[in-house]
Each structure stands twice: as structure tokens, then as C-alpha cells.
């Protein structure tokens, strides 16, 4: 089973990298970009029997830092 885990900074947590990317987009002449937040994408290939609970646990224990980040699990159709 293919699973994508999207990890993003919680709202309100300062994102210096997103800000720099935003600035760079403006420097390239793109207008109308209101905000940029940088995140992370993990692509996991796991056994079909892997439970939702186990996936959740992987996110909480390692893939995301729950102090500053949120995560979203997306199962990808084969």
C-alpha cells in the first residue's frame, strides 16, 4: 500500500523558509502570491495490513513533531 504523509507547520508557527521562498517568487516577478508555507511530503510503501492506528503512530512518534507540526495521511490508489 502506498501512503503519502503531508507534514506542515501549524498555523502561527513562524516559517522562515516559506518566507524566503515567497520573497524569491516575488523577485521572479510573480505577483499575487499572498503567502507561502513550506512543508514535507513522505511517500511510504507499507504492508497492506498496516492499520490506520499504526500509520497515525508513525506520524506522531517520528514523522511529525507535534509541538510545531500537523500531519495528514493520504492513501494512494495503486
Amino acid at each position: 500500500m502506498k501512503v503519502r504523509v503531508h507534514v506542515s507547520l501549524k498555523p502561527g508557527v513562524l516559517d522562515p523558509q516559506g518566507r524566503a521562498i515567497h520573497h524569491s517568487l516575488e523577485g521572479l516577478g510573480f505577483s499575487g502570491v499572498n503567502d507561502v508555507r513550506a512543508g514535507r511530503l513522505f511517500e511510504l510503501d507499507v504492508a497492506d495490513s498496516t492499520s490506520d492506528e499504526a500509520l497515525d503512530d508513525m506520524c506522531r512518534k517520528l514523522l511529525a513533531n507535534m509541538v510545531i507540526e500537523n500531519y495528514r495521511i493520504e492513501k494512494v490508489a495503486a
Binding site: 508557527v13 513562524l14 522562515p16 523558509q17 524566503a20 513533531n65 509541538v67 510545531i68
Partner: peptide
């Protein structure tokens, strides 16, 4: 220490990059 939960909070990228 923050990642292990022994101390609260987290250390983010420096604000000035």
C-alpha cells in the same frame, strides 16, 4: 532534548535564515 520530550518546545530555523 526537545525532540525527546525531556524539554518543552522546539527549535526552528533561525528567523534570519
Amino acid at each position: 532534548l526537545t525532540e525527546s520530550g525531556l524539554l518543552p518546545g522546539a527549535l526552528l530555523r533561525n528567523s534570519g535564515i
